[in-house]
Design a protein around this nucleic acid. Sequence first.
DNA 1: ACAAAAGTGTTGTATGTACACCCATGC
DNA 2: GCATGGGTGTACATACAACACTTTTGT
Lengths: 238, 238
Amino acid sequence: MGRGRAVVSLTVDLVIFTVRAEQLQVLLVERGNEPFRGQLALPGGYLRGAETLEEAAVRELWEETQLDGARLHLEQLRTYSDPRRDPRGRVVTTAYLALGADLPTPSAGTDAKEASWMPVRDVLEEGFLAFDHGVILRDGLERARAKLEYTSIATVFCSEPFTIGELRRVYEVIWGIPLDPSNFRRKLTRAEGFLEPTGKFRTSTVGRPAALYSRGSAPLLMPPFLRAQENSLPSAGT
Amino acid sequence: MGRGRAVVSLTVDLVIFTVRAEQLQVLLVERGNEPFRGQLALPGGYLRGAETLEEAAVRELWEETQLDGARLHLEQLRTYSDPRRDPRGRVVTTAYLALGADLPTPSAGTDAKEASWMPVRDVLEEGFLAFDHGVILRDGLERARAKLEYTSIATVFCSEPFTIGELRRVYEVIWGIPLDPSNFRRKLTRAEGFLEPTGKFRTSTVGRPAALYSRGSAPLLMPPFLRAQENSLPSAGT
DNA sequence: ACAAAAGTGTTGTATGTACACCCATGC
DNA sequence: GCATGGGTGTACATACAACACTTTTGT
């Protein structure tokens, strides 16, 4: 029964997205060791004895990037198991997708590795990232784009409270297409449980003050908010 | 760096669904060893040295159930990593979802274990299956239900060629709600690339002969075909 | 006054839903 | 003929896209 049972190491890797400077950005670390020394990679590390993969993801998030898992949306993305994906041996990795509002730059942390935000569009090309991290990144991007359509996930990219205009910019940046402000507003304000009005206004910017909202409780957007069949990956920027 | 690195075994488990006798059914095996001896479980087994998880899933599919992976839709579901999920030790498992048309009963195979189809509604209750397989099964069910909405996956439950009525029964059985035959037909025949007319008819049944179709090439259903927010899991049967 | 962003109204088109009705077959 | 499913037509309600228009601020 145990015949041929593989000896494997298990790791977690993190695709951490935020929207800053009108661009979708991903948090990357520079590798300090071979293989792929000096190349950029997703943050990640080995699973430890008594923890779940999710716990390992939160721990690595903190250790490598000083980000607080409780303030991010975190979900399992997929497990990658090609026997040749790591030249050092048999390493299976489970990728997690983390989404959050633009936070104080984490790279000023104390850890050895230097973490930095990079525009997704600049690192999408094949072979740019170490290992199979390019594939993982593209899978994470597609997951994030798809979830904007039928869940209220976009709100986690905004720090509360936020305006509808800020939320719209999240959609536009991640989908790479412009949206009609009036129709966007109607769609989201009518979606039951999507937005919670706070009664306050943001007046610090030009133009008419915008109403401030916080996240509602509904996880699903019904009916979904479909982008066109616009599936061209390279257009992730402004 | 290697500090605390977990020693883990990796397995694959399979949630195999088919529609037979107007019910959604899942393929289960009876455990021959402790723990959970005699209890029903999802088919599965250990990952071997040089294979991917997907290859292991196809291999176990054949070894345990005599089913041919090439004739099924197979996709990764999720990886489960609770340190206490297997009392024997640290076993992380990646679950795969397999969907297929009602095939010749596989349980008459040569292997040791007895595999058999069971109606999903009869095995959904918590604690019925071994390990955390109940959770995995419910995740697989929710994935299958969700994918009916926005992909053409339902067609893999029908053996080609099939009629629109047969396809409609797939939706009704998996969602547990009745659908209007006329509107269903219009929706699917208008979806570009969903159905490929064969020009032939099925005349072996009562009523007017039904046109026969084969699967089209479009993987996505645009716009999606939404069930109501009907999310009650126990209603998976007729 | 003007630019800029928020927010409202309106209109044509598409889509979904409900249901009446016709069609072709087995019995 | 009648039951049974296949398949078409139609009318109503809803939803979306496009875009004109009003409101409220900063400069």
